[in-house]
């Protein structure tokens, strides 16, 4: 178990470097130069030159990267080219919003997906077919579009939930819940359907396995067969797929935060992209990568708890 975690942390270091290096490296690929892109076509040569110096863009690439890493380690991620605000501060203030979107979505996806998948595997029939259809929709419909449809139904037509905006949990728990309900539903739809399908497939396989037949035949109560043996064994592959689904959901926050105008990391990233704000993009990239590492660690732990082969060896 410790070895698994150690391994994960060890892989995480190159991951951090790859992501930041890639983002950083893109800059040097820009046709023309970065300052020109940032300031736009009409900028004066003097302004371009000044920005170049200011951003240190005249220095050799590796020196600049080393410089950035050196600062990043001490928590200094530079400041926004546009607003001048320190990147670290804006990232940290927005992280809470993204997490209050992401974590409930993942929990919802895991719980609802496993319940639906198990029900489908055990019951079969119309329930399985219904889940098939819903899975197809969840797979096909883009989350931002689903978000907009939810807004037009629940906010515009029924007026029961706010269309946009975010209330922090600390301000008002009930309003927080209201403000994240639609975004969470839109964001988790894909995860729910993907996990339901995975659970159904693995549970069907487990239900057909020799040991289930053996335990059933020798008097293990049906309740325990399903809730203990089938559930436990079919959730092992589900835990594996949860990793990829989480990374996908993290990416999905970018779109969902824009639909619901939530002040999270995703909308920060979009704005930075439109503004060509390189330091902010770097900060968000680093933050997302750290989030992925954290998610992967949690999933490794879950996987280890579920699968004795990991624990024993």
């Amino acid at each position: 178990m410790l070895r698994v975690i150690g391994h994960r942390l060890l892989v995480s270091i190159p991951l951090l470097f790859i992501v930041t290096f890639a983002v950083f490296g893109l800059e040097s690929l820009i046709p023309g130069n970065a300052a020109q892109t940032i300031l736009g076509e009409n900028a004066t040569p003097a302004a371009v030159a000044q920005l170049n110096t200011q951003m240190g863009l005249n220095d050799p690439f590796f020196e600049r990267y080393a410089h950035w890493v050196g600062h990043a380690v001490t928590g200094n991620f530079g400041s926004s080219v546009i607003s001048g605000a320190p990147v670290w501060t804006s990232v940290v203030t927005r992280l809470g919003v993204t997490m209050s979107l992401l974590i409930p979505s993942l929990v919802l996806a895991a719980v609802a997906g496993v319940v639906l998948g198990m029900a489908s595997a055990v019951r079969g029939g119309w329930l399985a077919r219904l889940i098939d259809v819903v899975s197809l929709l969840g797979f096909a419909l883009p989350s931002f579009w689903v978000g907009l449809i939810l807004v037009s139904i629940f906010a515009v037509k029924l007026g029961v939930l706010p269309a946009t905006g975010y209330t922090p949990l600390g301000t008002s728990p009930s309003e927080w819940i209201a403000s994240i309900t639609l975004p969470v539903v839109a964001l988790s739809l894909y995860g729910i359907t993907a996990i339901a399908k995975q659970t159904r497939d693995s549970a069907s396989e487990v239900l057909d396995s020799d040991y289930i037949r053996f335990l059933r035949a020798n008097g293990v109560p049906e309740r325990s067969v399903l809730l203990k043996h089938v559930l436990r064994n079919s959730s092992i592959p589900v835990a594996t797929s949860l990793g990829l689904i989480s990374i996908g959901a993290l990416g999905g926050t970018v779109f969902i935060e824009n639909v619901f105008v939530l002040p999270g990391l995703g909308s920060l990233a979009t704005q930075a992209t439109l503004d060509h704000d390189i330091p902010v993009i770097l900060g968000v990239a680093l933050c997302f990568t750290l989030a992925v590492i954290a998610i992967n660690l949690v999933i490794d732990l879950i996987y280890g708890l579920l699968n004795p082969k990991v624990r024993v060896s």
């Binding site: 892989v11 995480s12 991951l15 790859i18 992501v19 890639a22 983002v23 893109l26 990793g243 990829l244 990374i247 993290l250 990416g251 970018v254 990233a269 979009t270 930075a272 992209t273 390189i278 993009i281 770097l282 968000v284 990239a285 997302f288 990568t289 989030a291 992925v292 590492i293 992967n296």
Partner: peptide, 11 residues
């Protein structure tokens, strides 16, 4: 596989 692709695209 652990790279958050979306931020790379945005960058």
């Amino acid at each position: 596989m652990s790279v958050p692709t979306i931020v790379i695209l945005l960058a």
